[in-house]
Design a protein around this nucleic acid. Structure first.
Lengths: 229, 229
DNA sequence: CGCGTAATTGAATCAGTTCAATGTCAGTGG
DNA sequence: CCACTGACATTGAACTGATTCAATTACGCG
């Protein structure tokens, strides 16, 4: 089971070009399957496991008291979700596609929790998460909607793109509202941004959830904040 | 030296009310002093230490290719800064007041890096950082400028407020531009927000950097996104 | 085929930015 | 002691871009 899942986990590069190989968390993993829309945990839940994603996409979010929602991150194969703070989960976590996970007890009180490898793995996962969150700030800190959207597509391009003829294709597992809550925009504005990117022949939308990247260079340019002529 | 520094580190409560006592990183700490404006490390630097703040305030930020800056966080006494990703620092880090730090080698290749306590401390610091970053998202994800500013002051109120008569006072170590880059606003808008909060008698500005919180309840209300009558 | 959900498009409004001017304060030197 | 300077904060007015709300279109599913 575990090896079957991990076959689908591909190595990936981060923005800095550092190549990272997916590793497995040393200890007794329990496979787990989630259906579309199924929550894995809620904010404030006592945390007993961390999870590594084998296949599928998950959404981490926080609700505000006034009902607004902030999507903190989307998690893809290889990612670790469920890292707690003070023993509690700090976000909502829900499968937005079918998902296969490996659950690992955390903290692992039985025996020496605390094999060096296990701790090292968790620390690395946490440090990588910190970096991803920092990257996310650059997306939503005072940029034009078009730039944010371009940066979002670029992010997915680097993480989950699939080849299609001479182009790369990104399948959006999330809807416009999810993207909006991730980028700090409204769904309408996200939609307009996609329309604009399509109009500029930077990308094509096969259907609303299938993005064909026609011009990755101009996409990255926009994402970096360089307004084009 | 170490004990002298740590005397000034007060326990604090997070938003969830969990009380956390500052602990020290087990291993050979090196005291370090920074003057106002002095950088501790830059984005991309090879990371050889993590630092725990004894006194002072530091600013962590990332520069964009187009010159814009995002302030990722402000770090206060007790906080750990310098957690790397893949051996490199992921942000700029600069002292915005005089600072006293303890520097700890990281990773500590000599001997068992890797004492359980040491690893546990670092993991806890990373998990806490993740939570703080998540909190920060709620500040800048689609809120009115007034709400963001109120939330920012509330944050400082909970972390570094000092009593003054019947009120609590927050000394802003950062200038309006720093706050703006933290909140995803312009300095002008931050200034207008402070003016508005003053006009509503929610806070008073002794000078531009000294905030007297007159009405913490209404401040928190605003911060939570509840527009008042 | 028709229903329900999600996405797109349009028009008016509103909030934040931009740019420019003014104000404030600390430090410096006459 | 006071005028000058430079950095920072505040205020004002015009503008720009995102939101809001409403209407329309597209699509998956029974």
């Amino acid at each position: 089971m575990q090896s079957a899942m991990l076959r689908r986990v591909r190595p990936f590069e981060d923005a800095d070009g550092v190549r990272r190989l997916p590793r497995t968390l040393p200890s007794d993993p329990m496979p787990r399957r989630l259906r579309l829309g199924q929550p894995l945990f809620h904010e404030g839940d006592g945390a007993h496991h961390v999870y590594q994603i084998g296949t599928g996409v998950m959404r981490l979010s926080r609700m505000q008291t006034d009902g607004r929602r902030q999507v903190i991150s989307f998690a893809f194969p290889g990612d670790v979700v469920g890292l707690p703070d003070c023993g509690r989960h700090t976000t909502e976590c829900e499968a937005i596609t079918e998902c296969e996970l490996l659950a690992h007890r955390f903290p692992d009180h039985a025996g020496p929790d605390r094999t060096s490898d296990r701790q090292q793995f968790l620390l690395d996962a946490a440090l990588q998460e910190i970096r991803r969150l920092q990257d996310h700030f650059l997306l939503i800190g005072r940029r034009l909607a078009l730039e944010r959207t371009a940066a979002f597509v670029t992010l997915l391009l680097d993480r989950i793109a699939e080849p299609l003829g001479r182009y790369q294709v990104v399948r959006l597992a999330m809807n416009r509202t999810d993207i909006a809550d991730y980028l700090g925009l409204t769904p309408e504005t996200v939609s307009r941004s996609f329309t604009e990117l399509r109009g500029r022949r930077i990308l094509a939308l096969d259907d609303a959830n299938t993005v064909v990247v026609l011009d990755p260079a101009r996409l990255r340019n926009l994402a970096a904040g360089h307004t084009e002529a």
